[in-house]
Nucleic acid binder design. Structure first.
Lengths: 193, 193
DNA sequence: CTTTTTGCACTGACTAGTCAGTTTAAACTG
DNA sequence: CAGTTTAAACTGACTAGTCAGTGCAAAAAG
């Protein structure tokens, strides 16, 4: 894999992510992707084989990034701050990869897609990182043992996703730390005994 | 508007909602919608004028329903239970109109659509119902005055949406009241002083 | 009561255009 | 030179939207 080719693939990724975030997968054409990437149409097929394969590669890239960053944040966090840091990692990822987050939300709930299972896998990996943090906290007694941590982690994940996209859409000038502080305030109340 | 025509329009609505929830707007063709509704293609154009107009009419129907049901729940609730009842109304709406909820999520975050403003309006109407409940509670002192109720209401809305779709997708056999109880438990902690 | 007319609702073949994907020969890059 | 990219033409399947024509029930005319 030459540096030149890697650069081309990165440009195609970026063009595809932004276009699909704007229009959805079905409404985005290969011609549009190639044009925005500043590349000939044939290059898409040379590098990825086709539109679906490009999108699948895109999702795979996103999977590894979001879940890994959340997991790394949980592991690096001082005891007792794991939840705070995981939520920060999710918020930061969405802030940095806004178009990818929009794309993920748009395609995540469409049930008949070829990549439906793949998208569910991303969500589940990310949610299970939150779930593991909550379970650890429950064993320490800092979270009520009666709490359904499965539902709670899905709730926390969705809360951050919604707030993050509203932040980028409606108030992009607010600093991330401000939004993070509010989320932590809400989350602490949600799960603290 | 004859009864026959009303029935046709209802069948077209239902077909369009389910197909767009499965595939997205851009990937859904008018031929598919007509076929699933058991109607000729021309009937779509006779009744709605076009694909976009059909979708816009669909969204308008959804707007009035979700926001109105949440507002009605807030107004009918005994003092102190408004938040609980509003969250129940949102959860129940999604449970009853699952396909519409999926469609809403899928199209809500695509920035370049003709109906982007319309979808944002739905979200804002629904979220502002929660915001009004929180503001009232803040004046009564049952919610910390320092809480950013704008962000908090967006967080609550997104939390319910995420949990509701996970519920319908992964554990549809669980009774709604069980999910509602968990959401109320989480929400109470989030906003109670 | 029968026949004719009216107009709403619907039909489906048709048009003009777009799309994903292929092929080619030539050009560039390291 | 091998690997990568380009530009352009092409195919066949599919798409949004159109329109002349059909079915049908209720009203009007005879």
């Amino acid at each position: 894999m030459s540096a030149r080719r890697e650069d081309t693939r990165r440009r195609l990724f970026h063009a595809a992510v932004s276009l699909i975030a704007e229009q959805g997968f079905g409404a985005t054409s290969v011609d549009q992707i190639a044009e925005r990437a500043g590349v000939a149409k044939g290059t898409v097929y040379y590098n990825f084989g086709g539109k679906t394969e490009l999108f699948t590669a895109l999702l795979a890239w996103g999977i590894s990034r979001l879940a890994e960053e959340m997991r790394a944040a949980a592991e690096a966090a001082p005891s007792g701050t794991a939840l705070t840091e995981v939520l920060r990692a999710e918020l930061a990822f969405i802030g940095e990869h806004e178009a990818f987050a929009r794309l993920l939300v748009s395609e995540a709930w469409q049930t008949n897609q070829a990549w439906y299972a793949t998208v569910q896998q991303i969500r589940n990996e990310a949610i299970s990182v939150i779930g593991a943090v909550l379970d650890t906290a429950a064993r320490r007694g800092s979270v009520p043992a009666t709490l359904d941590t499965g539902v709670a982690s899905s709730a926390l994940f969705g809360m951050v996703l919604t707030v993050a996209l509203d932040w980028r859409t409606l108030q992009p000038e607010r600093p991330m730390e401000e939004i993070h502080a509010i989320l932590v305030q809400l989350a602490q109340g949600m799960v603290s005994r």
